[in-house]
């Protein structure tokens, strides 16, 4: 990361401070995991979209290329959402997507499928990824959750040392609105 900071130094002047040593980040471990899973989704989504036969052939599900392509589009959606500020939604959408993936691979576990060994391996991988997704989603949700209760009341913070009532209209006595922000005056009396 410091390399990027140094590279961007070409956009700075000689008196501007330059990064010498990086410190702790606002990104937590759960955020970084979410980012990693987001990029994984993008990679997997592109593979499913562009080379579905690789996948159907590997697990013995020939003829299901259309479904794999659709899953690819869905996976890209998970990726974009997981890489966004709303990463909790992205990660939970990945969990839902994992369930769909597992359901889709179940028919390939039939002993009649010559590639059922590969399908079993795919299922194990899917279960592992699901566990990782659930852990990441829980971690990110916990890190960024705003507790629904326990908020502090600031009802004693008026900002007016002499009281809110005394403040009302206090600036009207000595503040002249500049001509560039004045509303046009009424052309008849008694307008409210």
């Amino acid at each position: 990361m410091i390399a990027f900071s140094r590279l961007s130094g070409i956009a700075r002047s000689k008196g501007d401070p330059k990064v010498l040593r990086t410190g702790p980040s606002s990104l937590g471990g759960a955020d970084r995991l979410a980012r990693g899973l987001g990029w994984f989704s993008i990679g997997l989504g592109l593979t499913e979209l562009l080379a579905p036969r690789l996948i159907t052939r590997a697990v013995g599900l020939r003829g299901r290329e259309g479904l794999v392509r659709a899953f690819g589009v869905r996976e890209l959606g998970h990726g974009v959402l997981s890489l966004s500020v709303d990463k909790q939604a992205g990660l939970w959408s990945r969990v839902a997507g994992d369930v769909l993936d597992i359901v889709a691979v179940l028919p390939a576990l039939s002993p009649a499928n010559r590639k059922h060994g590969n399908a079993e391996l795919a299922l194990i991988m899917l279960l592992g990824v699901t566990v990782l997704d659930v852990l990441a989603a829980q971690g990110v949700s916990a890190r960024h959750r705003r507790p629904p209760t326990g908020w502090r009341s600031y009802s004693d913070r008026s900002g007016f040392p002499q009281g809110a009532e005394r403040a009302r209209g206090a600036a009207r006595r000595d503040f002249q609105t500049a001509s560039d922000t004045q509303a046009p005056p009424a052309i008849a009396p008694g307008v409210a």
Partner: peptide, 28 residues
């Protein structure tokens, strides 16, 4: 000196950076 530095989306760090220097006679 220490400073809060932007490294990317949601990635702010408290980094050690070089001190700023006067570049122009109107600087402080």
């Amino acid at each position: 000196m220490k400073a809060l530095v932007w490294h990317g989306k949601e990635d702010i760090r408290c980094d050690q950076v070089s001190d700023p220097e006067i570049e122009d006679p109107r600087d402080a």
